[in-house]
Design a protein around this nucleic acid. Sequence first.
DNA 1: TCGATTTGACCCGG
DNA 2: CCGGGTCAAATCGA
Length: 312
Amino acid sequence: MEKVGSWDTKIVISELTQGRDLANELKNQLQPAKSREACGYLVEKILSSYDNALSVLNDMSFLENPSQINGLLGSASPRSSDGSDLIDSKDRVIKKRKTLAKWSEQVRVCSGTGLEGPLDDGYNWRKYGQKDILGAKFPRAYYRCTHRNTQGCLATKQIQRTDKDTSIFEVTYNGAHSCIQERLKQKKENSLILKKEEEEIQRHEAQQNMIILKNETQELDTKEEIFPSFEFFSEPIKESNFSANYSPPFLSSTTSESYNFEIHHNLQTSETDFSEIISNPASVTNSPLGDLDFSIDPVDFDPKFLDSIEYF
DNA sequence: TCGATTTGACCCGG
DNA sequence: CCGGGTCAAATCGA
């Protein structure tokens, strides 16, 4: 394929849209199924994946259409020769901030699921800060890729528990991973990190509400209710490659508690830094969905997108 | 001992 | 000046 014009993009969008609709239909069909929890998880992941892909493609089709670029960038200032900087009204060169691909998710973690969703997104993160955010009940935690120094990976993420529903976490990802990670090894570590994080949030909440937990048992019970288990869900799912005969071991131990899972993707590439995403094959799996084995294969994925870069 | 986390200080853009 | 984001020394813990 020589290049991907808006017509080709429309086809891709159309195909993805159809796939999403079909997955939706599948979701409906699976309602009475016994293993609804597992199916629901898979279907939600499928849908999220489609949403992500569509978001990317929709943004790209924006960029392919010059008449829409002004709307996207506002009344853009003239650019300097290399296109990387902006020039203000007094002809001063303003270094354009290097913006990385940015997207966010809202993840609900409910009783009985043990689902941490993108909180365990298959990458090694190192916490480098935590801030109390004005007007927010819970602090925001800042993470960067563990391989920042060793591999120069610039990916970061922020995690913050939402005010209204304490079971929902807002996870904002910044930048694409350029690192190669050991995926299996890190999962247990992540689980430990998350447990600590949860404990910290609990502590913070307790402080804020001036609640003194009368005994340790009560505290443990509360933790158990929100994050009953980090590991048992994600481990088998991710390594099962979603084979048809896969039977999640946790289902037998899961009671009648409903599988309550909600994930919302909000992909933003506020500026034209798609090269951040596209040029790096590893970044294809940078999405929080990247831990899924059915994520788009970089080999099949790259050529079209690389061709489309020429429009940027 | 060494890598990860904590946390107050610092930086910087609005 | 304020608030969000990052730095880095102290601390933790495996």
